[in-house]
């Protein structure tokens, strides 16, 4: 088996995650989809690391995880405060930009 298949898998997962972000309205699920996209990226990075024979890809994947963790913390805090003020976790309800 060619390790390139890992890249195909990553692309597939990334696309699914992105489509999920676009389709779902629940902010939490939306966030999960973002995490899925990040994970797909990490998989691609790890596969790259293997192909190139050095650990830089893994280091970057590691950083991605750290950043993702930070992002999740802040994002979930935002969702919680949003829910507190609006009693809704739907991103469509947070549409103050609309006219």
């Amino acid at each position: 088996m060619n390790p390139v298949n890992y890249l195909y898998l990553a692309a597939l997962l990334f696309t699914i995650g992105a489509t999920g972000v676009l389709i779902r309205r629940n902010a939490i699920v939306l966030f999960m989809c973002v995490e899925l996209m990040l994970n797909a990226c990490n998989l691609a990075l790890v596969a790259f690391s293997r192909m190139h024979g050095n650990l830089d890809g893994q280091i970057i994947a590691f950083f991605v995880m750290v950043v993702a963790a930070a992002e999740v913390v802040v994002g979930l805090a935002i969702i919680v405060s949003l829910f507190r003020s609006r009693h809704s976790a739907s991103v469509d309800d947070a549409s103050l930009m609309k006219l």
Binding site: V21, R25, V91, S95, L96, K98, L99
Partner: peptide, 14 residues
């Protein structure tokens, strides 16, 4: 197009 929905904008970005 400017409907104020973040998801709509996300589609255009995507």
């Amino acid at each position: 197009l400017q409907n104020g929905y973040a998801r709509s904008y996300a589609v255009s970005m995507f």
